[in-house]
Design a protein around this nucleic acid. Sequence first.
DNA 1: TATTGTTATACTCTATAACTATA
DNA 2: TATAGTTATAGAGTATAACAATA
Lengths: 150, 150
Amino acid sequence: MADEKSSPRLADTDLADEIEFLLARARSIGTSRANAALGAFNLKVREYSVLSLACSGLDPSQTELASFLRLDASQVVSIVDALEDRGLVVRARAEGDRRAKTIAATAAGRDLYTLAYEAARTEEARSLAPLTATERSQLRSLLRKVALGG
Amino acid sequence: MADEKSSPRLADTDLADEIEFLLARARSIGTSRANAALGAFNLKVREYSVLSLACSGLDPSQTELASFLRLDASQVVSIVDALEDRGLVVRARAEGDRRAKTIAATAAGRDLYTLAYEAARTEEARSLAPLTATERSQLRSLLRKVALGG
DNA sequence: TATTGTTATACTCTATAACTATA
DNA sequence: TATAGTTATAGAGTATAACAATA
């Protein structure tokens, strides 16, 4: 991808004031940086996200992962397949519903996550460098309302 | 895509506090809603974005569009092709650099943009419903710093 | 030699439909 | 009848390389 700095000439347009546009541009920059940082661990953001939730201790089902990550169920299958093949997560039958499978990290998965998490935080700090600490937590709480409804 | 409400059970994880994740989720919701709203005008968000900048009066070149929208130059070609085929924008040789082509909206393009812009604002308001007016402008200025560097 | 636009190509991401096993 | 997971497939989005015209 080209440079991340915008051509400032277009920064005074209607589009540049649309929150949807700004959201799309910010995530595009963030995702490409995050993918670059996670590449050191052979992870992409989507695999990282699944691994993170697998490390949460909440034993999410694949359907829960799909809904929370806004992925199709079939995409979750292939991501979990890839992580399972690498020994990072395991599938288990859910108690109470034998159709569902819960995803949990292995010891190796947790170890890798610890490293990847640090890399992700470093990258995030870099992306948010133009913001003060206060502004960062403001942004976090505003985005939580928009993205998670609270 | 599935439901837009998150499974609240996973909202208390490390991932749910990562700004990059929240950015990705918010834009995923926003983009799919925007695509649905713009579908009434046979536009997708990317075409809408190009049309918007074509209506700005700044006569952006295709390279400027690519950089500002974080698209590959070849993608801009096909988006402009589609808009031009519909008589919404026109290409012109740039003064001063005969390699470059500037993109400007036609009268029909401006008319369509006026309608599409209203639809986009309505959708945006819906997506930002959980925020107060003050929070919305806070979010806008924080995102401008992250997405545009100011 | 480098850049703009263009074309062709391939790769990743996302969505759809159909199947199975459970509920 | 509906849902969780799976598979296969197709479509949308994105990236890469090569070329012509111009700088």
